[in-house]
Design a protein around this nucleic acid. Structure first.
Lengths: 262, 262
DNA sequence: GTTTCAACGG
DNA sequence: CCGTTGAAAC
């Protein structure tokens, strides 16, 4: 059995107590964090090692972005893709020793406000990032799990209002199509949606700007766990921790976890 | 009996819990705050009124400086001097209704790093401020108490090292002389030094930068309470609360309080 | 060292 | 709304 979790933590230093709480209470074997917002030497490596997560692959940068995979199982960092080719720390790949699984931890760019690559360079960069991921996906030759903040909610049931979000970055048809191309390039299985099936409501993020997140529930599913076909068949459970959105000083994202019969 | 306190609070919003603690435990009739660092609409008026300090004269500005006098006794704001003539909120004057006392609450500019008006405009502004106060002092015709952060430590026993601070802004002979001219212009009595007499050590401020403030004790007396001659004769006690420098997330200044037989 | 602001990114 | 940086001020 191997359990893998993913969580956009929005500053791992500020929210170290929440990460510790999560690891203590949920105890996944592997936790993939995005938006750690720190450099590698600032990552709370000892605090997480003290909880048993002594195997770590951290790709940080100053102030923005940054991803980290921490694990109770031995792990070897195998890649740091820069799919935007701009030096931002948005990916780290790790091999889980003795488990025939590669864990790709990714933080797709948010893409700015205007869904038009002509007027908003960030939107173009987001699409470029996905297109380069798609090219990369064709070369995968080992059972792979890719998780993280994809910053796209592909299904109607992935957002609180399909109609109101059609022109909002994260749910535009162009982004959804571009993500679908990535999906097809390797035949990924969307594990989350295998277990919480469309059209059931499934959100992983609620904006800080929208007050009373539980009552108004204006969420989106921006975080994902996708597996290679063979690996996906080993996924035996998947759950999300909505209550984490109500913790003291929360991240705007919640953790997702999948258990594999490995 | 009327007790008046003064405290440079270094952000009243951030340190509201400390102000509340002080008011609950020491219960002066009047508290003069400096460096409230907020606009008037942001001042925690209700919280202080709830403790009985419902009479308030607040002169705030965005982000910097700002003074406030809060009182359990009825009070009427009577002046807001701009002795720098640059719009900064560094003074508020209030009449204590039925007590024949004007309370002038002042925050003298710090004066920058270099004690030379030619190379450091802020030092010149500080001296200008004091000179304009001196001219104003000649016109005082009612029993007056002037308190606040004067940003000058005039006596040798007002600093941890007279020799090492002779060229440090706050203790230069030029500042001390300029302050003395202000003192002479009205015949102010330095109430603090009436009760904790030179050459006894008397500090009201310890820099955040100097670690272990209690052990190294590199303090200065920057905060003062000066009274008109007749009023000074009514001062029956004066004390300082050094322990406030050790409170959680403290101001770098401590509160001073004087009790008057009025 | 501590707090403020402004800018940026989300 | 929340977090980061970097400058300015004390």
């Amino acid at each position: 059995m191997v359990s893998v979790a993913t969580w956009n933590i929005n500053s791992v230093r500020l929210r170290l107590p929440l990460v510790e709480k999560y690891l203590r209470e949920e105890a996944p074997d592997i936790l993939c964090l995005q938006e750690i917002k720190c450099q590698e030497h600032q990552f709370p490596a000892e605090a997480l090692a003290a909880l048993g997560y002594e195997h770590q692959a951290v790709h940080g940068q100053k102030g923005y972005h940054g991803v980290a995979t921490v694990s109770r199982l031995p792990l070897r960092e195998v890649s740091r893709h820069d799919w935007q080719d701009n030096g931002e720390a948005r990916h780290v790949g790790a091999e889980i020793i003795g488990k025939d699984m590669i864990v790709e931890n990714v933080y797709v760019p948010a893409g700015g406000d205007v869904p038009d690559r002509e007027v908003n360079a960030k939107f173009g960069q987001k699409l470029d990032f996905l297109e380069r991921m798609t090219r990369w996906a064709g070369s995968i030759d080992r059972p792979t799990l890719i998780v993280g903040d994809f910053n796209i909610a592909p299904l109607e049931s992935d957002v609180w209002s399909h109609k109101q979000l059609l022109k909002v970055v994260s749910h535009t048809p162009l982004e959804v199509d571009t993500l679908q191309e990535f999906k097809d390039a390797h035949g990924w299985t969307d594990i989350g949606r295998e277990h919480i099936r469309d059209p059931e409501r499934y959100f992983s993020w609620w904006s800080y700007r929208s007050p009373d997140w539980r009552k108004n529930d204006r969420g989106r599913r921006l975080d994902h766990m996708w597996a290679s076909p063979d690996l996906a068949r080993q996924a035996i459970s998947h759950r999300i921790l909505e209550e984490a959105r109500s913790w003291e000083k929360p991240s705007d994202h919640i953790p997702l976890v999948t258990e594999f019969a490995l």
